[in-house]
Amino acid sequence: MSNRPAGDAARSTVRPHGETKGNGQVRAFLRTADGVSVESVYDPGADAVYEGFAGPLEADSPVSRAPVFVIAHGFTGDVDRPHVRRVARALRGHGAVVTFSFRGHGRSGGRSTVGDKEVLDLAAAVEWARRLGHARVVTVGFSMGGSVVLRHAALRPGTVDAVVSVSAPARWYYRGTAPMRRLHWLVTRPEGRLVGRYGLRTRIHHRDWDPVPLSPVQAVPRIAPVPLLVVHGDRDGYFPLDHPRMLAEAAGDHGELWIEAGMGHAEHAADDALLARIGDWAVSAAG
């Protein structure tokens, strides 16, 4: 769905424009390296006290020393979806949080390339977190977002301190489950893209990938030595357990695999207890 690999694009220019609330939350629009406007929200950690945040943070402040979690949502999500806000609230107990809407989702510009150019959206959000003064950045991705955090860490070495991928595919073009066959119809057929635009508030690009981007399982070995956590439910209806096991095998000693009993797919299935465990792991791993 792109004419060049996302990792080869120029560095993004982060130009936030938005509003600051009294609790420190900042809503902004970031500009990606290829010129797409990406809606983003910054939430300070639960223990931070602000009289009106303007950024950047003091370099030695408790907030800057705590990790910032940059959350990459799944396909058809956006920054204001209830399940995305719930993830943000759960992780705020462990550090600050940046959420954003991928291109083609919510109020962000452009059209979704279903995991290819989305690396540029994540890169803009990570750069924004760094410019706000955070010394440690953890990316946490779900489903499509899970594949994006893997590829971003591989293509942009040194930009993050830990990576968490939840319910991600290991390989492209998987059609082995009914939900994935429906997703491929949504993405590849004109009538499916209409359903995506008007029924799911997701604008999908009509072009096929050219070239095909680096797959998640190919990306994983390039992430080392950055710590990696792969999380997957044993009742995931989209991707069976061979996907997380392939990712964990590719990660080797620098990766950790959690197979969660009774868990389904992505943000909707990740309960607050699991998110708290992910937060604890990230604080330790990124330290």
Score class of each variant (00 low, 15 high):
32 T>H: 03
20 T>L: 11
61 S>E: 05
16 P>Y: 12
24 G>N: 07
14 V>G: 11
31 R>H: 08
5 P>T: 12
17 H>F: 12
7 G>F: 06
18 G>C: 15
58 E>P: 06
63 V>G: 01
5 P>L: 10
10 A>V: 09
20 T>P: 03
40 S>N: 06
73 H>W: 04
65 R>D: 03
36 V>R: 13
54 A>L: 06
16 P>N: 15
52 G>F: 02
4 R>A: 15
30 L>N: 08
7 G>P: 07
30 L>G: 10
67 P>H: 12
59 A>G: 01
50 Y>A: 04
8 D>E: 14
54 A>M: 01
46 A>I: 00
72 A>L: 02
56 P>Y: 01
35 G>F: 10
57 L>K: 04
49 V>G: 02
47 D>T: 04
64 S>N: 02
54 A>P: 00
43 D>P: 02
20 T>M: 10
45 G>S: 07
19 E>F: 10
26 V>I: 12
61 S>F: 03
58 E>N: 09
8 D>P: 02
32 T>R: 02
36 V>H: 07
24 G>R: 09
6 A>C: 10
16 P>A: 13
58 E>G: 11
52 G>N: 01
17 H>S: 15
46 A>V: 00
35 G>S: 06
46 A>H: 00
62 P>I: 00
32 T>Y: 05
42 Y>C: 06
71 I>Q: 07
22 G>K: 13
11 R>N: 07
26 V>N: 08
34 D>G: 10
20 T>W: 07
72 A>G: 12
64 S>E: 02
44 P>F: 08
44 P>N: 09
28 A>Y: 05
53 F>P: 03
5 P>G: 06
48 A>G: 00
52 G>W: 01
66 A>F: 00
12 S>C: 09
70 V>I: 02
18 G>F: 11
4 R>I: 14
4 R>D: 08
59 A>Q: 01
26 V>S: 08
33 A>F: 03
39 E>I: 06
18 G>L: 14
40 S>G: 09
41 V>C: 12
58 E>H: 04
64 S>L: 02
26 V>L: 13
65 R>S: 10
60 D>W: 05
71 I>G: 04
40 S>D: 01
27 R>W: 14
63 V>D: 00
17 H>P: 05
21 K>Y: 09
63 V>Y: 00
55 G>L: 10
5 P>E: 15
52 G>Q: 03
32 T>K: 07
46 A>D: 00
60 D>E: 14
49 V>H: 10
49 V>N: 03
9 A>G: 01
58 E>W: 01
28 A>T: 11
35 G>D: 04
39 E>G: 08
68 V>C: 10
63 V>M: 02
11 R>V: 07
36 V>P: 04
38 V>S: 06
27 R>T: 15
37 S>T: 08
49 V>L: 05
42 Y>A: 03
74 G>P: 06
33 A>G: 15
23 N>C: 12
25 Q>S: 14
29 F>I: 12
46 A>R: 00
36 V>K: 08
70 V>D: 06
71 I>L: 13
58 E>S: 13
20 T>A: 15
47 D>R: 05
62 P>R: 03
6 A>I: 05
59 A>N: 02
6 A>Q: 07
61 S>V: 09
8 D>W: 05
67 P>L: 09
48 A>P: 00
35 G>K: 12
37 S>L: 13
39 E>D: 06
5 P>A: 12
66 A>D: 00
